[in-house]
Design a protein around this nucleic acid. Sequence first.
DNA 1: TTATGGATTATGGATTTCCGTAAAATACTG
DNA 2: CAGTATTTTACGGAAATCCATAATCCATAA
Lengths: 222, 222
Amino acid sequence: MFKKVIVAEDLGDINLAIEQTLKDLDIVNFQHAKYCDDAFLKIRKAIQDNEPYDLLISDLSFKKDHREVKIANGDELIQKVREIQPNIKIIAYSIEDKSLRIKSLFDNSEIDAFVLKGRNSIEELKKAIHIISTSDQTFISPEVASALQEKSNYEIDDTDIKILKYLSDGTSQDEIIEIFKTSDIKPNSKSAVEKRLSKLKDFFKANNTVHLVSITKDMGII
Amino acid sequence: MFKKVIVAEDLGDINLAIEQTLKDLDIVNFQHAKYCDDAFLKIRKAIQDNEPYDLLISDLSFKKDHREVKIANGDELIQKVREIQPNIKIIAYSIEDKSLRIKSLFDNSEIDAFVLKGRNSIEELKKAIHIISTSDQTFISPEVASALQEKSNYEIDDTDIKILKYLSDGTSQDEIIEIFKTSDIKPNSKSAVEKRLSKLKDFFKANNTVHLVSITKDMGII
DNA sequence: TTATGGATTATGGATTTCCGTAAAATACTG
DNA sequence: CAGTATTTTACGGAAATCCATAATCCATAA
């Protein structure tokens, strides 16, 4: 079982519940961080002190408030923690149920478990902790398990997402092309952007651009 | 202080925290409901038994699962509870920070308090309970207090929202006009719809239709 | 070098959206 | 009822997009 745990979670209520859960599991050496930045600093310090954490439980979305932060969400935190401590076990604990995001966490950040916050998620969290503490298996909440089976969206790259973001931001296609040209992004011709848009519409089964942006927003891609 | 309280909240974690909060306030007679339907039935039964609740604390968004439900979210629950028990005090406890929705809760459902879930919301919840138990004042979390000052968006009516929803659903303007004509919705000419869209774009400072849908989605209007 | 295939870019026309103006219908007022 | 104001509808040209095809570039291999 884990000896030293850190929880990154902004909601006070949920921190309370996680605290209780960890106590139930006889884990007494744990700390909270209500901001990603704080969590990262603590993890880095623990490494330097040669007393690293062996488990990170992290939420994905964090409320913005007056405080200025470097790491704005759990995805980034997880990514950065993986870099400085590759062997730490990571549980993402979130209400997020968009399959693309979940899949990306397993694929890109190699999280060990994804627990979906819900009516009985405390039990699931316990289960996840058990499984990943005793083996190298991964755990995922059954409601979203299908996310991992999704056929990979290899067709969508960074430029596509950039285009989608600009579009949802009110930029016209012509303006996007201009921006791409001035900032030296590779495909920057009118027809190249049009072709990509056409592919995206095809991929997401969107009738038109408005629909496309609406769908990708819903999916949490942009 | 309140004698009998019901909490409508699906997340197990938060239920745990609210439970603790109520105990801290020496409120021992309280019940949870993880579904809006259950909450409504309990409230109705309590009225029939002549032992009505005097406080409802309700979340706004509830996860969908296998179970089929009549009341899908907290907004509807609050509305229906107000109808059958006008004198009950209601606290909306939610992570929702869209000012339009919050304003609508105060205006249309006459909630007594809105507490924004956040890093220290437990304390705010206690404060809200105190204030509304001893007076007819309302309470709103300071982070979103500005929501009540928002100038009313009188310009946006039901038809506008319908148009926006159709648009985000991939329907073209021409198709929308067809739909309006076949279902006898008042303004159903090409130019009428165009004018409305133009007004909406003006109102929301949107550059184009894609932008407009993106903005209104973010605001929670559609 | 030349040929080949893939990716990028260019072109042009069909369709849709955008936006202003004007006509028609409706409501409101004295 | 006439006259004015407001809303709804009609029209048309400009702009943007959609979409198919053709031309160009470029790396690799014969």
